[in-house]
Design a protein around this nucleic acid. Structure first.
Length: 225
DNA sequence: CGGTGATCATCG
DNA sequence: CGATGATCACCG
């Protein structure tokens, strides 16, 4: 069963998402006719895919926003009962080549994060998948401070890539956004350039939002209204 | 193969 | 016990 039911507007999408607040993943899955896996070990993207389907996002792996006509990206956000994110948030694969002419302003990361529908899910490990509750979804765009932090980290990480130092980048780099492996396993390789400009093969990387960043925006939206 | 959706699992 | 590096499933 596919999404015949595509949200017509940002407001429509937001309302639909907010109607999920308080529901359990089990209830939502049942309504959608989807079986809840016993755990996420072999279904790591399950929550995100469930929400995509229920909210009428376009499926597939195309590098586009989940709602192309609205320019909105959908992100599930696992949190604990104290509203603290439990995991970093994957943003996108990091380009390791073809970076000439790319800057923060025209970067893919900035585009992806321009408008995000965050759907918090209380996902403490001890809670069975089906019993995990959806929190209050909210639409977010970076404010000036957030965008400055993202731009700074993106620049630092991209500079290192351009200088051929991608293999010296560790998770600790970046204040709010980091670069980490993003692959099926550590044997997967993609092309990059070393510091002498020579091509070599390395592990694909992705940009991830650190927990302090998503925690901050969560608080910004949950606090004053 | 390289993108999407992410969480797992081990280490300090 | 949090953060980093590694990993899993699916799609076109």
């Amino acid at each position: 069963m596919n999404n015949v039911n595509i949200p017509s507007s940002e407001q429509d999408l937001l309302e639909r998402a907010q109607n999920l607040a308080g529901l359990s993943l089990g209830e939502i899955a049942k309504h959608a006719g989807i079986v809840v896996p016993p755990n996420l070990t072999r279904n790591k993207g399950w929550v995100g895919l469930l929400l995509e389907q229920v909210l009428g996002a376009s499926a597939g792996s195309r590098p586009e926003p989940d709602f192309p006509h609205l320019g909105i990206e959908l992100k599930s956000l696992p949190i604990n009962e104290q509203a603290k994110p439990l995991e970093t948030t994957f943003v996108s694969v990091a380009p390791l080549t073809g970076l000439v002419g790319i800057n923060w302003h025209n970067s893919y990361v900035r585009k992806k994060l321009a408008r995000v529908l965050w759907v918090p899910v209380i996902s403490a490990k001890e809670i069975p998948i089906a019993e995990r509750l959806v929190g209050m979804p909210f639409l977010w765009s970076p404010n000036e401070e957030e965008e400055a932090l993202l731009a700074q980290d993106w620049q630092e990480l991209t500079d290192m890539i351009v200088l051929g130092e991608v293999e010296n980048i560790q998770g600790k780099h970046g204040q709010v956004m980091q670069l980490r492996p993003k692959a099926a396993n550590s044997k997967v390789k993609t092309q990059a350039f070393d510091k002498n400009g020579k091509p070599f093969m390395t592990l694909p990387r992705g940009f991830y939002l650190k927990i302090n960043f998503t925690q901050g925006l969560l608080h910004r939206y949950l606090r004053v209204n």
